[in-house]
Design a protein around this nucleic acid. Structure first.
Lengths: 245, 245
DNA sequence: ACGGCGATTATGTATATACATATTGAAACG
DNA sequence: CGTTTCAATATGTATATACATAATCGCCGT
């Protein structure tokens, strides 16, 4: 029967959002097993006391997300989940280089403390204004540049970083242990080297590079955003895993 | 002026689908650069001779897919190519493409059955000689090439594959379910497009591409090696995770 | 000039309605 | 008895309309 009526506390704000999250909760919790037929749009519109269009919006999104399957004239059904979890390990460049048997060298190129620009805040997903530390560093394998690092540190989350020069120690290892991260996000893509990167990596402008960006949070506070750029020949990311667990 | 009127040949079928793919084509092709303001809902509804709701549906999906950003009172803007892609876990291209709200199309380009060459055996980490199936396939998002697939299948491990033409179904989905994999390895790197890849992806030779290679084993037997090549603009891998819970 | 305030505007959500489309199940028919 | 036809039904798409919400612009008064 109707759960709603008074529309008490909820998250999404909008009604279709709420319907969507109610249903996906049922599916993800296992209350509605794969194959289970979801109430018809018409029934849900009565339950939630809304129009069919609103229910349709929610169900369409669930279908696009792959949680349910819709069949005309038959109804909507919970789909079997079909994903495997893979975890990409966080890599420490020194270890990568040394694993290659090459001597590792670190170099701090630049360091600026500043009020966060709009771009900084976008990269960090930082809501409020506040100071950031912008760093630029080189990582070398033997004589050759191995990776170029561009990093932002949210000084509101890590005030100690303001006092550190990062001349002897790279920001990655410095942060680890000092700031326990609770969540991280990697973005991996290929780009053409611009002039700045080309010079830093000693490659031709326009040459393909692998970019790995990582954003890290600690207890919902953005901590750091870092972009590593590797010359194409120098690097391959490897992730090995087994299905499920 | 109105491009539509008679609603000539198109793909998605529905109007909002068509609007969506028109706009994403403009964005993915670079015709509308990041920051570009997209016509207002009102303007598009005039252009396409439809209601604002229909345009809204298309733009909302584009926003959810991350291609555009919508700001009240200001309009909708092309976002920086932090395009979208499912997490590293699922690597089903159809799902990635459909998550963008674009129609997916698959095409088998070539298929050869042959005795494994030395290179084949190296890619598959295959110890003994034996037949392999070499496939080349195209994956499209709307009209644009999204990814190029080059695959080897170890026929000793999957004899059924010798009888399959892979004209209607992509080898990835075909293999899943038929061959339970026990282990997989990903290699991710950036390369410059050679002539073959450039032609397949409709990009310039030498342009940066993201290459994802996956090797899969089932009970210690190599099953398949696949290489997906993406044009740089079209793809960003995203992996988000927590250390434990 | 400066700061506040309301009007304007684009998007966000929801509604009632309409018709299209695919599929099911049952009735009609050879 | 099998097949065809047809109506019922659930989803798919589109429309006109309405009001909410947020952000911007310009006006106004101090």
């Amino acid at each position: 029967m109707s759960i709603v009526e008074t529309a008490d506390a909820e998250a999404g704000g909008s009604l279709h959002q709420r319907i969507l999250s109610d249903i996906s909760e049922k599916i993800l919790s296992g209350a509605w097993a794969p194959g289970h037929r979801i109430p018809f749009e018409h029934e849900l519109s009565v339950q939630y006391n809304c129009s069919r269009m609103t229910v349709n919006k929610a169900l369409s999104q669930l279908a696009k997300a792959g949680l349910i399957e819709r069949r005309r004239r038959s109804g909507s059904f919970v789909r079997r989940p079909q994903s495997q979890a893979a975890v990409l390990e966080i890599h420490d460049i020194r270890i990568e280089v040394e694993a290659l048997g090459l001597p590792y060298r670190y170099e701090r190129v630049a360091r600026h403390k500043r009020r966060s620009s709009a771009e900084d805040r976008a990269l960090l997903e930082l809501a409020n204004l506040g100071p950031v530390l912008a760093l630029e560093c080189g990582h070398f394998a033997g004589e050759r540049p191995f990776a170029h690092e561009q990093r932002l540190i949210n000084l509101a989350a890590v005030p100690d970083a303001a006092e550190e020069e990062f001349l002897a120690i790279a920001p990655g290892p410095w942060l680890i242990g000092r700031v326990p991260w609770s969540e991280a996000e990697h973005r991996i893509r290929a780009v053409a080297a611009d002039r700045h990167i080309a010079a830093a990596l000693e490659i031709a402008a326009g040459a393909p590079c692998l970019v790995v960006e990582r954003r890290t949070w600690s207890a919902d506070h953005p901590v750091t955003h870092v972009r590593f750029t590797y010359a194409a020949e120098s690097h391959t990311l490897v992730a090995r895993f087994r299905p499920q667990g």
